[in-house]
Design a binder for these strands. Structure first.
Lengths: 130, 130
DNA sequence: TACATAGTGTTATATTATAACAATTTACTA
DNA sequence: TAGTAAATTGTTATAATATAACACTATGTA
Protein backbone atom coordinates (compact mmCIF):
# COMPACT_ATOMS: atom_id res chain seq x y z
CA UNK A 1 0.00 0.00 0.00
CA UNK A 2 1.30 3.36 -1.00
CA UNK A 3 1.70 6.08 1.57
CA UNK A 4 -1.47 8.13 1.90
CA UNK A 5 -0.95 11.54 0.44
CA UNK A 6 -1.97 14.34 2.79
CA UNK A 7 -3.85 17.13 1.16
CA UNK A 8 -3.34 20.79 1.89
CA UNK A 9 -6.22 22.99 2.89
CA UNK A 10 -7.12 24.15 -0.61
CA UNK A 11 -6.63 20.72 -2.06
CA UNK A 12 -8.88 19.20 0.57
CA UNK A 13 -11.64 21.76 0.10
CA UNK A 14 -11.66 21.24 -3.63
CA UNK A 15 -11.37 17.48 -3.44
CA UNK A 16 -14.28 17.28 -1.00
CA UNK A 17 -16.45 19.30 -3.32
CA UNK A 18 -15.66 17.17 -6.36
CA UNK A 19 -15.98 13.98 -4.37
CA UNK A 20 -19.45 14.90 -3.18
CA UNK A 21 -20.62 15.87 -6.64
CA UNK A 22 -22.53 13.29 -8.62
CA UNK A 23 -21.27 14.69 -11.87
CA UNK A 24 -18.01 16.05 -13.27
CA UNK A 25 -17.34 19.61 -12.21
CA UNK A 26 -15.84 22.39 -14.28
CA UNK A 27 -13.12 24.59 -12.87
CA UNK A 28 -15.17 27.76 -12.67
CA UNK A 29 -18.13 25.94 -11.14
CA UNK A 30 -15.70 24.74 -8.49
CA UNK A 31 -14.42 28.26 -8.02
CA UNK A 32 -17.93 29.58 -7.53
CA UNK A 33 -18.64 26.91 -4.92
CA UNK A 34 -15.53 27.43 -2.85
CA UNK A 35 -15.48 31.20 -2.80
CA UNK A 36 -17.23 31.23 0.55
CA UNK A 37 -14.35 29.14 1.88
CA UNK A 38 -11.82 31.77 0.92
CA UNK A 39 -10.60 30.47 -2.42
CA UNK A 40 -11.02 33.51 -4.58
CA UNK A 41 -8.98 33.13 -7.74
CA UNK A 42 -9.02 30.70 -10.68
CA UNK A 43 -5.36 29.94 -10.19
CA UNK A 44 -5.94 28.64 -6.70
CA UNK A 45 -8.44 26.21 -8.14
CA UNK A 46 -6.27 25.15 -11.06
CA UNK A 47 -3.27 24.57 -8.84
CA UNK A 48 -5.23 22.31 -6.56
CA UNK A 49 -6.74 20.50 -9.54
CA UNK A 50 -3.31 19.94 -11.06
CA UNK A 51 -2.04 18.41 -7.87
CA UNK A 52 -5.12 16.26 -7.32
CA UNK A 53 -4.86 14.93 -10.86
CA UNK A 54 -1.14 14.28 -10.39
CA UNK A 55 -1.68 12.16 -7.28
CA UNK A 56 -4.66 10.39 -8.77
CA UNK A 57 -7.42 11.63 -6.45
CA UNK A 58 -9.32 13.10 -9.38
CA UNK A 59 -9.34 12.69 -13.13
CA UNK A 60 -9.89 15.16 -15.90
CA UNK A 61 -12.52 14.30 -18.47
CA UNK A 62 -10.70 15.78 -21.41
CA UNK A 63 -13.61 15.96 -23.80
CA UNK A 64 -15.61 17.94 -21.27
CA UNK A 65 -12.96 20.02 -19.49
CA UNK A 66 -14.33 18.72 -16.24
CA UNK A 67 -13.08 16.87 -13.19
CA UNK A 68 -14.36 13.80 -11.40
CA UNK A 69 -13.22 12.09 -8.20
CA UNK A 70 -11.44 8.81 -8.71
CA UNK A 71 -13.94 6.05 -8.14
CA UNK A 72 -11.35 3.35 -7.88
CA UNK A 73 -9.85 3.15 -4.41
CA UNK A 74 -6.65 1.56 -5.63
CA UNK A 75 -6.03 4.25 -8.22
CA UNK A 76 -3.29 6.32 -6.65
CA UNK A 77 -1.97 7.74 -9.86
CA UNK A 78 -3.84 8.46 -13.08
CA UNK A 79 -1.89 6.45 -15.57
CA UNK A 80 -4.66 4.33 -16.97
CA UNK A 81 -8.10 5.81 -17.08
CA UNK A 82 -11.31 4.87 -18.85
CA UNK A 83 -14.69 6.52 -18.69
CA UNK A 84 -18.14 6.12 -20.11
CA UNK A 85 -19.95 9.29 -21.00
CA UNK A 86 -23.65 9.59 -21.75
CA UNK A 87 -24.14 11.94 -24.66
CA UNK A 88 -27.55 13.03 -23.44
CA UNK A 89 -27.40 13.46 -19.67
CA UNK A 90 -23.62 13.81 -19.54
CA UNK A 91 -23.32 11.28 -16.75
CA UNK A 92 -19.76 10.04 -16.48
CA UNK A 93 -18.68 6.78 -14.92
CA UNK A 94 -15.19 5.51 -14.39
CA UNK A 95 -14.77 2.09 -15.91
CA UNK A 96 -12.81 -0.41 -13.90
CA UNK A 97 -12.39 -3.48 -15.98
CA UNK A 98 -9.37 -5.63 -15.32
CA UNK A 99 -9.40 -7.07 -18.81
CA UNK A 100 -9.66 -3.65 -20.43
CA UNK A 101 -6.81 -2.19 -18.43
CA UNK A 102 -4.72 -5.28 -19.01
CA UNK A 103 -5.35 -5.11 -22.73
CA UNK A 104 -4.49 -1.43 -22.99
CA UNK A 105 -1.54 -1.49 -20.63
CA UNK A 106 0.01 -4.23 -22.71
CA UNK A 107 -0.93 -2.75 -26.05
CA UNK A 108 1.96 -2.27 -28.44
CA UNK A 109 1.65 -0.47 -31.73
CA UNK A 110 3.14 -1.52 -35.05
CA UNK A 111 6.60 -0.33 -34.09
CA UNK A 112 6.43 -2.22 -30.84
CA UNK A 113 6.06 1.02 -28.95
CA UNK A 114 4.63 0.65 -25.46
CA UNK A 115 2.93 3.43 -23.62
CA UNK A 116 3.26 4.61 -20.07
CA UNK A 117 -0.17 6.10 -19.83
CA UNK A 118 -3.52 6.22 -21.54
CA UNK A 119 -6.93 7.82 -21.34
CA UNK A 120 -10.01 6.32 -22.93
CA UNK A 121 -13.42 7.92 -23.25
CA UNK A 122 -16.40 5.91 -24.43
CA UNK A 123 -19.55 7.68 -25.61
CA UNK A 124 -23.05 6.36 -25.77
CA UNK A 125 -26.36 6.45 -23.98
CA UNK A 126 -26.71 5.45 -20.36
CA UNK A 127 -29.46 3.16 -19.11
CA UNK A 128 -31.81 5.98 -18.25
CA UNK A 129 -31.40 7.81 -21.52
CA UNK A 130 -31.93 4.82 -23.75
CA UNK B 1 -17.91 3.23 -50.68
CA UNK B 2 -19.55 6.25 -49.12
CA UNK B 3 -20.28 9.28 -51.20
CA UNK B 4 -17.35 11.67 -51.14
CA UNK B 5 -18.23 14.73 -49.11
CA UNK B 6 -17.57 17.95 -50.93
CA UNK B 7 -15.96 20.63 -48.86
CA UNK B 8 -16.89 24.26 -48.97
CA UNK B 9 -14.28 26.93 -49.57
CA UNK B 10 -13.48 27.59 -45.92
CA UNK B 11 -13.55 23.92 -45.05
CA UNK B 12 -11.18 23.13 -47.90
CA UNK B 13 -8.73 25.89 -46.99
CA UNK B 14 -8.62 24.76 -43.39
CA UNK B 15 -8.47 21.07 -44.22
CA UNK B 16 -5.59 21.62 -46.64
CA UNK B 17 -3.65 23.47 -43.97
CA UNK B 18 -4.16 20.79 -41.32
CA UNK B 19 -3.47 18.04 -43.83
CA UNK B 20 -0.13 19.57 -44.83
CA UNK B 21 0.94 20.06 -41.24
CA UNK B 22 3.18 17.44 -39.70
CA UNK B 23 1.79 18.11 -36.28
CA UNK B 24 -1.61 18.82 -34.71
CA UNK B 25 -2.71 22.40 -35.16
CA UNK B 26 -4.52 24.60 -32.70
CA UNK B 27 -7.49 26.69 -33.73
CA UNK B 28 -5.82 30.06 -33.38
CA UNK B 29 -2.68 28.87 -35.16
CA UNK B 30 -4.97 27.85 -37.99
CA UNK B 31 -6.67 31.23 -37.88
CA UNK B 32 -3.35 33.01 -38.10
CA UNK B 33 -2.36 30.91 -41.11
CA UNK B 34 -5.54 31.42 -43.10
CA UNK B 35 -6.03 35.11 -42.52
CA UNK B 36 -4.30 35.89 -45.79
CA UNK B 37 -6.94 33.73 -47.49
CA UNK B 38 -9.75 35.86 -46.12
CA UNK B 39 -10.76 33.88 -43.06
CA UNK B 40 -10.67 36.53 -40.38
CA UNK B 41 -12.63 35.39 -37.36
CA UNK B 42 -12.30 32.51 -34.88
CA UNK B 43 -15.85 31.44 -35.53
CA UNK B 44 -15.16 30.81 -39.19
CA UNK B 45 -12.37 28.48 -38.15
CA UNK B 46 -14.37 26.70 -35.47
CA UNK B 47 -17.29 26.16 -37.79
CA UNK B 48 -15.10 24.55 -40.40
CA UNK B 49 -13.37 22.47 -37.74
CA UNK B 50 -16.69 21.25 -36.36
CA UNK B 51 -17.81 20.14 -39.77
CA UNK B 52 -14.50 18.49 -40.64
CA UNK B 53 -14.57 16.57 -37.38
CA UNK B 54 -18.19 15.57 -37.98
CA UNK B 55 -17.43 14.08 -41.38
CA UNK B 56 -14.25 12.45 -40.18
CA UNK B 57 -11.71 14.38 -42.25
CA UNK B 58 -9.93 15.55 -39.11
CA UNK B 59 -9.82 14.52 -35.47
CA UNK B 60 -9.54 16.57 -32.33
CA UNK B 61 -6.79 15.60 -29.93
CA UNK B 62 -8.75 16.34 -26.78
CA UNK B 63 -5.84 16.47 -24.38
CA UNK B 64 -4.13 19.06 -26.55
CA UNK B 65 -7.03 21.06 -27.97
CA UNK B 66 -5.53 20.50 -31.37
CA UNK B 67 -6.59 19.06 -34.70
CA UNK B 68 -4.98 16.51 -36.98
CA UNK B 69 -5.97 15.22 -40.40
CA UNK B 70 -7.32 11.70 -40.46
CA UNK B 71 -4.53 9.38 -41.46
CA UNK B 72 -6.81 6.50 -42.20
CA UNK B 73 -8.30 6.69 -45.66
CA UNK B 74 -11.28 4.55 -44.74
CA UNK B 75 -12.17 6.67 -41.74
CA UNK B 76 -15.16 8.63 -43.00
CA UNK B 77 -16.58 9.33 -39.58
CA UNK B 78 -14.78 9.76 -36.29
CA UNK B 79 -16.47 7.12 -34.19
CA UNK B 80 -13.47 5.15 -33.12
CA UNK B 81 -10.21 6.98 -32.75
CA UNK B 82 -6.89 6.16 -31.13
CA UNK B 83 -3.72 8.20 -30.98
CA UNK B 84 -0.23 7.96 -29.61
CA UNK B 85 1.20 11.15 -28.19
CA UNK B 86 4.84 11.75 -27.37
CA UNK B 87 5.09 13.62 -24.10
CA UNK B 88 8.34 15.28 -25.08
CA UNK B 89 8.11 16.31 -28.74
CA UNK B 90 4.29 16.22 -28.83
CA UNK B 91 4.28 14.18 -32.02
CA UNK B 92 0.89 12.61 -32.52
CA UNK B 93 0.17 9.55 -34.62
CA UNK B 94 -3.16 7.98 -35.38
CA UNK B 95 -3.15 4.32 -34.45
CA UNK B 96 -4.82 1.98 -36.87
CA UNK B 97 -4.87 -1.42 -35.31
CA UNK B 98 -7.61 -3.76 -36.36
CA UNK B 99 -7.37 -5.75 -33.15
CA UNK B 100 -7.51 -2.64 -30.97
CA UNK B 101 -10.53 -1.22 -32.75
CA UNK B 102 -12.23 -4.58 -32.71
CA UNK B 103 -11.57 -4.95 -29.01
CA UNK B 104 -12.88 -1.50 -28.14
CA UNK B 105 -15.83 -1.52 -30.51
CA UNK B 106 -17.02 -4.73 -28.93
CA UNK B 107 -16.24 -3.71 -25.38
CA UNK B 108 -19.14 -3.96 -22.98
CA UNK B 109 -19.01 -2.71 -19.42
CA UNK B 110 -20.36 -4.48 -16.35
CA UNK B 111 -23.93 -3.50 -17.12
CA UNK B 112 -23.60 -4.80 -20.64
CA UNK B 113 -23.60 -1.28 -21.98
CA UNK B 114 -22.17 -0.93 -25.46
CA UNK B 115 -20.81 2.31 -26.80
CA UNK B 116 -21.34 3.98 -30.10
CA UNK B 117 -18.10 5.91 -30.06
CA UNK B 118 -14.75 6.13 -28.33
CA UNK B 119 -11.56 8.12 -28.22
CA UNK B 120 -8.31 6.75 -26.87
CA UNK B 121 -5.11 8.65 -26.26
CA UNK B 122 -1.89 6.85 -25.41
CA UNK B 123 1.03 8.75 -23.92
CA UNK B 124 4.67 7.83 -23.94
CA UNK B 125 7.93 8.62 -25.66
CA UNK B 126 8.35 8.28 -29.39
CA UNK B 127 11.35 6.55 -30.98
CA UNK B 128 13.35 9.75 -31.33
CA UNK B 129 12.77 10.95 -27.80
CA UNK B 130 13.67 7.73 -26.07
C1' DT C 1 -40.20 30.28 -58.28
C1' DA C 2 -40.34 29.26 -53.60
C1' DC C 3 -38.76 26.93 -49.88
C1' DA C 4 -35.54 24.52 -46.74
C1' DT C 5 -30.92 23.75 -45.42
C1' DA C 6 -26.27 24.76 -44.92
C1' DG C 7 -22.70 27.98 -44.98
C1' DT C 8 -20.75 32.81 -44.41
C1' DG C 9 -19.29 37.26 -42.28
C1' DT C 10 -19.25 40.02 -38.33
C1' DT C 11 -19.14 41.89 -33.60
C1' DA C 12 -19.17 40.85 -29.12
C1' DT C 13 -18.54 37.94 -25.29
C1' DA C 14 -18.13 33.64 -22.59
C1' DT C 15 -15.19 30.01 -20.91
C1' DT C 16 -10.93 27.80 -19.83
C1' DA C 17 -6.24 28.33 -18.36
C1' DT C 18 -1.61 30.40 -17.31
C1' DA C 19 2.26 34.14 -16.33
C1' DA C 20 4.63 36.57 -12.97
C1' DC C 21 5.86 37.84 -8.46
C1' DA C 22 5.88 38.19 -3.49
C1' DA C 23 4.79 36.02 0.83
C1' DT C 24 4.08 31.98 3.70
C1' DT C 25 4.12 27.33 5.20
C1' DT C 26 6.06 22.76 5.44
C1' DA C 27 9.32 19.32 5.83
C1' DC C 28 13.82 17.91 5.81
C1' DT C 29 18.56 17.93 7.61
C1' DA C 30 22.88 19.58 9.47
C1' DT D 1 16.60 23.59 16.76
C1' DA D 2 18.09 26.76 13.36
C1' DG D 3 18.73 26.84 8.56
C1' DT D 4 17.21 25.96 4.16
C1' DA D 5 14.99 23.95 0.07
C1' DA D 6 10.67 22.82 -1.77
C1' DA D 7 5.94 23.31 -2.00
C1' DT D 8 1.99 26.04 -1.41
C1' DT D 9 -0.54 30.27 -1.19
C1' DG D 10 -2.49 34.85 -2.50
C1' DT D 11 -2.96 38.27 -5.92
C1' DT D 12 -3.41 40.90 -10.29
C1' DA D 13 -3.32 40.63 -14.89
C1' DT D 14 -3.71 38.39 -19.19
C1' DA D 15 -3.54 34.55 -22.59
C1' DA D 16 -5.83 30.90 -25.02
C1' DT D 17 -9.92 28.45 -26.31
C1' DA D 18 -14.67 28.60 -27.74
C1' DT D 19 -19.56 30.22 -28.51
C1' DA D 20 -23.89 33.54 -28.92
C1' DA D 21 -26.54 36.22 -31.83
C1' DC D 22 -27.88 38.19 -36.03
C1' DA D 23 -28.05 39.37 -40.82
C1' DC D 24 -26.94 37.74 -45.16
C1' DT D 25 -25.72 34.36 -49.14
C1' DA D 26 -25.37 30.16 -51.65
C1' DT D 27 -27.19 25.61 -52.92
C1' DG D 28 -30.27 22.03 -53.75
C1' DT D 29 -34.85 20.53 -54.70
C1' DA D 30 -40.05 20.31 -54.95
Amino acid sequence: MQKQQLLTKNQQIIFDLIDKSTEPMKAYAILFNVQKKGIKAPLQVYRALDKLVEIGKIHKIESRNAFIACQNSSCQVSKATAFSICEICEKVTEISSASLSKYLTNFKDKDGMKYSKYNLEFFGLCKKCR
